[in-house]
Design a protein around this nucleic acid. Structure first.
Length: 97
DNA sequence: GTTGAGCGTT
């Protein structure tokens, strides 16, 4: 198990600092990032947070998952590493059709 | 509005 949290259901107005502040109320945030679409520089509506320990990650999930933020329902869960997804793992990142 | 990048041609 890791300490990385996936945070979905974010408003497009939420940014990394907002995300960190939200989770910091329920544990020690080591890092937080809202994923921005690199083509539009706007939020994709989800992000990632890393807590100091798994224990704090768990309580952050329990406290924030299913709640609302900036008018949207939050989904909080342990994340999986991006390398685990076949879409961008080494061998070809960009589509070439 | 649901799982993060960019490098560059293996």
């Amino acid at each position: 198990m890791n300490k990385k949290l996936y945070v979905g259901g974010l408003s497009y107005t939420v940014t990394d600092a907002q995300l960190q502040a939200l989770f910091a109320s329920h544990g020690t945030v080591e890092s937080a990032k809202v994923v921005m679409d690199r083509e539009t520089d706007r939020s994709r509506g989800f992000g990632f947070v890393e807590m100091s320990t798994q224990e704090e990650a768990e309580k952050a999930i329990a406290s924030l998952n299913g709640t609302q933020h900036e008018g949207r329902s939050l989904t909080v869960n342990i994340s999986k590493p991006r390398e685990d997804r076949p879409a961008r793992s080494g061998g070809g990142g960009r589509d070439r059709y």
